[in-house]
């Protein structure tokens, strides 16, 4: 256990050494939420979810803040795990020489990722509450946290697939923004109610957040198993890629 904590500490130090990433954790989500809130006009929208009209009608600013909170969160989560993943690829052989076992490395890495995601989610949740009136705080927090975990795994997968940091960042930005800011945006997405959308990574976690905020028949936790299943699939993909890359 002490080895895992020591190693987690080393990972955190690696991250802290890159001051830009530390600044990114705090600035990017706040900036996105702020601009998202400012860009939304002051009016109510007809919002249909789970086959029912949301009543009272939400304001555009609420929807905008939820989506940009999520965009900021998943961007930071995936960039940081991508960065840690790229470092880990170089570090693993050396750590093994220092008698660290694979489960120890993985546990330490997971601990760091979960800690960072908890910190960013907490920050985003608190900041977004300026504009939101949340019915169920746990549901909203968990919706955001699970989406950050999904995209962290996604960042890890990309760290295994690309050679350069720049290409990895472009891919992360393209997919994260496409999913959370565009496709899942009920304000202007024409794909929002299509069946295949449930294949998108942020789909169920956004639903969880919406259900925790607005008055809907369904409980926020009704689809939580799909989020966990999606996470398990992403982890399996990461392990498979890891296995083939090694061999």
């Amino acid at each position: 256990m002490s080895k895992i904590i020591f190693l987690s500490n080393q990972f955190l130090k690696t991250l802290y050494r890159d001051k830009f990433l530390v600044v990114l954790i705090f600035i990017l989500p706040v900036l996105l939420i702020f601009v998202g809130a400012m860009s939304a006009p002051d009016r109510e929208v007809l919002f249909i979810m789970d086959g029912q009209i949301v009543n009272p009608a939400p304001e555009t600013v609420e929807i905008s803040v939820i989506l940009y909170s999520l965009t900021g969160l998943v961007l930071v989560a995936s960039i940081i795990s991508f960065y840690l993943g790229m470092n880990l690829n170089k570090l693993v052989p050396r750590l093994k020489q220092y008698s660290y076992t694979t489960p120890q490395i993985i546990s330490a890495f997971l601990l760091v990722v979960i800690l960072i995601n908890l910190l960013i989610t907490l920050m985003v949740t608190v900041f977004s509450l300026n504009w939101l009136d949340v019915n169920d705080m746990i549901g909203y927090f968990l919706g955001l946290f699970l989406s950050s975990l999904l995209f962290s795994t996604f960042g890890l997968i990309i760290s295994k697939l690309v050679d350069t940091t720049a290409l990895g960042l472009y891919l992360i930005l393209t997919i994260s923004i496409l999913d959370t800011a565009f496709l899942e945006n009920p304000l202007f997405s024409r794909r929002y109610n299509e069946d295949w959308m449930n294949l998108m990574p942020a789909y169920y976690s956004i639903k969880m957040a919406f259900r925790a905020i607005f008055d809907l028949k369904e409980n926020w936790y009704d689809d939580i198993q799909f989020v966990l299943f999606y996470e398990a699939v992403l982890v399996a993909i990461y392990l498979i890629i890891n296995y083939f890359k090694k061999s």
Partner: peptide, 30 residues
């Protein structure tokens, strides 16, 4: 002049400027 940080700053700045701030899609801020 750091490639990772610089390109990330530019990507996010350009996206926010052109898609959210000066774009009529972001009605209130526009």
């Amino acid at each position: 002049p750091d490639v990772t940080a610089g390109s990330l700053i530019l990507l996010i700045f350009a996206f926010m400027d052109l898609m959210m701030i000066v774009n009529p899609m972001g009605e209130a801020i526009y």
